[in-house]
Amino acid sequence: MFFTEENVVSVELNNLRLPLATFVLEVDVVLAGRVTAIFGASGAGKTALLEIIAGLRRPAAGAVRLDGAALTDVAGKIFVPPERRAVGYVPQEGALFPHLTVRENLAFGQARAGAEPTAGLTFAHVAEVLEITALTERRIGTLSGGERQRVALGRALLAAPLLLLLDEPLAGLDAGLRDRLLPYLARVRDEFRIPMLYVTHAPDEVMALCDDVLVLAAGRLEQRGVPAAVFEVGTAPRYVRRR
């Protein structure tokens, strides 16, 4: 358990339904609000699920509640726009603003955080934890893949989210870089204590960072449990056993 009770935020996904190209995403689950992995093969609907939570997609039915407050509720005609959700989102490619410097990227979301940053989320502290202090005056085009992901993570943190959505932040990086970045994610988890949903298809990332795993296959929740149980030989999802 990485979080004390006061840090826990409940994320309720009630009867969510969204038709996608080849299947229908259907999820009904309550998350404990620690570091939860959404695990599954490519095209299982993981990114679509994060987008619904972030408010970037509207589901056909169902509701999303953060600490009991509805962010999306199709039946109740509630849709809180993404800018008022306090849900941070780091997509796979980082999506840094190429026309801004690292400092300007990091400061982009600070307006929402307000004058008093919470839980030690100051610019200096976040930059220090992610070791990006020396990069702040650089242009985005000059950063390496790993640096970009750290800046993207810092930018999302500085907007003081109640929940952080990470969409395969280490995919697309080579194995060495992945191994070097994992400790940064662990530091973010331990230092800032912001609940995270971590989308990945790499079991080692789940084992290193998460304490709860949802296994998604073709839009449905196939399995749920602690990483050690889910990835135990014999009970692991099919596409893990094949490796």
């Binding site: 972030a54 408010g55 970037l56 726009p81 993404p82 800018e83 008022r84 959700r85 849900v87 941070g88 989102y89 997509p91 490619e93 999506a95 603003f97 190429p98 026309h99 982009f108 979301g109 307006a111 929402r112 955080a113 930018r155 999302a156 907007a159």
Partner: peptide
């Protein structure tokens, strides 16, 4: 201009106008 950048800007607290002026238009 990648819609992804506009989406991320929204999650960072920027409303549609701010996204247009600070992300879409400059890019």
């Amino acid at each position: 201009v990648s819609p992804r950048l506009e989406q991320v800007a929204r999650t960072l607290g920027a409303g549609p106008w701010r996204v247009f002026w600070r992300v879409t238009l400059p890019l």
